[in-house]
Amino acid sequence: DETGKFLVLALYDYQEKSPREVTMKKGDILTLLNSTNKDWWKVEVNGRQGFVPAAYVKFL
């Protein structure tokens, strides 16, 4: 149950560059965990948590 969690859509592919980031593919649906930083949002994708560039995702 994803109640209270926001979902975001990956607009572009992103390859993680550090262990704190996660890789996503364009079209992936991600669970948004934290968006307090304007540049990097914490998400969960494929069972992994990490950061992606905020400009690469949008709210569903």
Rank of each mutant, 00 (worst) to 15 (best):
G27A: 03
K26Q: 12
D13A: 07
Q15M: 14
V52E: 00
E16H: 08
E21V: 04
T23H: 04
G4F: 12
T36F: 10
T36G: 10
Y12A: 11
V45F: 12
K42F: 15
L9P: 00
D28I: 03
F59S: 09
L7K: 11
R48K: 15
K26E: 08
K17A: 11
M24A: 02
T23E: 04
L9A: 07
L9H: 06
L30D: 00
N46A: 10
V22L: 12
G47K: 06
D1I: 14
N46S: 10
D39M: 09
K38A: 12
A55L: 09
K58R: 13
N34Y: 07
W41T: 04
V22S: 02
T23V: 03
S18L: 10
R48A: 07
F51K: 03
D28C: 05
P53M: 03
K25L: 09
D39W: 14
S35C: 10
L32C: 08
L60V: 11
E21D: 06
E16N: 07
F6P: 13
D1E: 14
N46I: 04
Y56H: 07
F6L: 13
Y14L: 01
V43F: 01
N34R: 06
T36C: 10
E21Y: 05
D1G: 14
F6K: 14
K42C: 10
W41F: 11
E2R: 05
V22H: 03
V22Q: 03
D13E: 05
Y14R: 03
G27Q: 02
P53H: 02
V43K: 00
T31Q: 11
V43Q: 00
T23G: 10
R48D: 04
R20Y: 15
D39K: 12
L30T: 01
D13V: 02
V57C: 09
T36N: 15
L11F: 04
E44A: 09
G47Y: 05
L30N: 00
Q49I: 13
A10Y: 02
E21C: 06
K17L: 10
K42I: 15
K38N: 14
V57P: 00
V52Q: 00
N34W: 07
L11G: 04
A55P: 09
Y56L: 15
N37I: 06
A54H: 03
T31P: 11
D1F: 10
A55M: 11
D1P: 15
L60P: 06
A55R: 13
Y56A: 14
V45Q: 09
P53S: 02
V22M: 10
S18V: 05
P19K: 09
P53W: 03
L32E: 00
G50M: 04
R20F: 14
Y12M: 12
M24E: 00
K25P: 00
W40L: 03
W41I: 09
K38V: 11
M24Q: 02
P19T: 09
L60A: 08
L32V: 10
E21W: 03
V43D: 00
V8Y: 08
E2K: 11
T3Q: 15
Q49V: 13
F6D: 09
L7I: 11
R20G: 15
W41S: 03
A10I: 02
K58G: 12
S18K: 07
S18Y: 07
N37L: 08
L33S: 02
Y56C: 08
L11I: 12
Q15H: 15
A54P: 04
K58L: 13
K58I: 15
L30E: 00
G50H: 02
K26C: 06
D28A: 07
K5C: 08
V45I: 14
P53T: 01
R48Y: 06
D13Q: 03
Y14F: 08
L30W: 01
Q15S: 14
E44G: 06
W41M: 05
L9Y: 13
N46R: 14
G27K: 02
Y14N: 01
V45R: 13
E2N: 15
W41A: 05
L7Q: 10
L11S: 04
L60Q: 07
D28K: 03
Q49L: 08
F59E: 14
S18M: 07
V8Q: 01
G27H: 05
D39Y: 14
V45Y: 11
D39N: 13
W40Q: 03
R20A: 14
T23M: 04
L7H: 10
L11Y: 04
E44Y: 06
G50W: 02
W41H: 03
G27R: 02
L9G: 03
D1S: 15
E2H: 13
Q15Y: 15
R20S: 15
P19G: 09
V57E: 00
V52Y: 01
K26P: 03
T36A: 11
G4Q: 13
L30M: 13
Q49A: 12
W41V: 09
F6G: 13
R48C: 05
K17G: 08
Y12R: 13
M24K: 00
Q49S: 15
Q15E: 15
L9M: 15
W40H: 03
N46H: 09
T23L: 02
F51N: 03
T23K: 04
A54Y: 03
Q15K: 11
D28S: 06
E21I: 03
Y56N: 05
D13L: 02
V45C: 08
K58D: 11
G4D: 13
K58S: 14
F6S: 13
L9S: 06
Q15C: 08
E2M: 12
A54D: 01
V8G: 09
K5I: 13
K38T: 09
K26W: 03
K17E: 09
K38Q: 11
P53A: 02
L30Q: 01
I29R: 07
Q15L: 13
Y14V: 01
T31G: 06
Y56E: 02
L60W: 11
V52W: 01
Q15V: 14
N46G: 14
V45T: 12
T36Q: 12
F51T: 03
G50Y: 02
Y12L: 09
S18N: 13
V52M: 02
E16T: 08
W41E: 00
A10L: 02
N37F: 08
I29H: 06
Y12G: 06
V52C: 04
S35K: 12
T3C: 10
K42Q: 11
L32Q: 00
E21Q: 12
E2C: 09
V57K: 00
R48H: 09
G4N: 13
T31A: 09
R20I: 14
E16L: 07
V45E: 03
L32S: 02
V22T: 05
L7N: 07
G47E: 07
W40R: 03
L9C: 08
T23A: 07
V57H: 00
Q15W: 14
K5N: 11
L9I: 15
T31M: 13
F51H: 05
R48E: 06
T3L: 15
R48F: 06
N34P: 03
E44L: 08
T31H: 12
V22A: 05
F59L: 15
V52F: 00
G47N: 10
N37P: 04
G27N: 07
P19L: 09
K5Q: 14
Q49H: 09
M24Y: 01
V45H: 15
L9K: 09
G47I: 02
K17C: 08
K42N: 06
F51V: 07
G4S: 14
K5D: 08
G50C: 02
N34H: 07
L32T: 02
I29D: 01
N37V: 05
F51A: 03
E16G: 14
N34S: 13
S35M: 14
A55T: 15
L11Q: 05
E21K: 04
V8D: 00
S35I: 09
D28V: 04
P53Y: 02
D1C: 10
Y12F: 15
F51E: 04
T23W: 04
I29S: 04
R48P: 01
I29W: 06
K42G: 06
Y56F: 13
L33W: 05
D13K: 02
Y12V: 12
G4W: 10
V57Q: 00
P19E: 14
D1L: 14
K25R: 13
S35V: 09
F59D: 08
D39I: 14
V8P: 01
Y14S: 01
K5S: 12
V45K: 10
K17V: 09
V22C: 06
Y56G: 07
K38M: 10
A10D: 00
D1W: 09
N46W: 07
V43N: 00
V45W: 08
K26F: 05
M24C: 06
I29L: 10
L60M: 13
N46K: 10
G47S: 06
Q49W: 07
T31Y: 11
T3G: 14
K26L: 05
A55V: 10
N37M: 09
P19A: 10
L60T: 08
G4E: 13
K38D: 11
